[in-house]
Design a protein around this nucleic acid. Structure first.
Lengths: 151, 151
DNA sequence: TGGAGATTGTTTCTTTGTAAACAAATTTTG
DNA sequence: CAAAATTTGTTTACAAAGAAACAATCTCCA
């Protein structure tokens, strides 16, 4: 009998389910979808939060450095920063010693906001991978740190 | 001295570098960039390949099932399939027993092409995470399978 | 010193993917 | 059975992200 595949778990993936790149992509989508179920309408997306968080902990950081660390391309970073500036969350300053660069700082209002947002963001992050044991989560974290070169 | 952050590895990430969601996003970008360095102008992107690969191994699979398994949204799947159809790689058939559904099959030409593409695709996939040991790669694979619910 | 090349950020255009409204077919249920 | 609800795929409008071309500034070296 050669019935066409009708249900998700019948699907034959072959070697695909051993491919790291494929698995990482699936994981990323899952995290993202899970985020919007949980944090739904908080108004602050994961990308935005990570940018603000890093600026909080590195006041005066340059756009280029921020982009390199978070792996956000220049063109996109420009848009992100402008959007944050429009929301009055960050301010830009051209340093005297290099007038091409832009140094980013949080506004005072944003500082308290981001600290607060950190609470629920990391609470959410703790719920990521809740189908793994604590030990597995720890293991996965370490492996991903090494994989991404963050160790 | 409170110098603004100037180089990537000076950047303070705080709790962020222990956040699974953040790490997974970084990993995904890294895989994707690495892919285009390696496989540059092969004309077949990771997403397209995975779709074709799954159709190859599940001939007559329905669009909805394909989308669920690869976590591709309906609206997007429609465009992907149409693009593949325009390239004469897949054909669509409305089954008699459910005239809303669409069953997808590879064209004969695509079958050999995808089998061939599999060779370099999985060769590339083997090079993903080359900064990890073989054991670590295996571990990461198993953890991601569990994480994504593919086990 | 001054010009070639690199760096930094912006702009414009394109690609990729999502959301919401819709139409058609099917299933459920009163 | 017939109306209501669900499923499946498409369309349209939009958001997120990258690529390439560009302008301004800085660096390096002949």
């Amino acid at each position: 009998m050669d019935m066409p595949t009708r249900t998700t778990d019948e699907v034959i993936l072959g070697r695909l389910n051993t491919a790291l790149g494929f698995l990482v992509r699936l994981a990323q989508i899952k995290v993202y979808e899970h985020f919007f179920e949980e944090c739904g309408e908080r108004g602050l997306k994961p990308g935005e939060f990570s940018v603000l968080w890093v600026i909080l902990h590195n006041p005066g950081i340059r756009q280029s450095v921020l982009g390199q660390r978070l792996m956000i391309k220049r063109a996109h970073m420009t848009k992100l920063i402008r959007s944050l500036e429009d929301q009055n969350l960050v301010s830009r300053r051209i340093p005297d010693d290099d007038r091409r660069a832009v140094e980013i700082t949080l506004t005072p209002a944003a500082r308290t906001m981001v600290e607060q947002a950190g609470d629920w963001f990391f609470a959410y992050e703790d719920s990521v991978g809740s189908n793994l044991t604590t030990a597995e989560r720890q293991q996965l974290m370490v492996l991903l740190q090494k994989f991404t070169g963050l160790d």
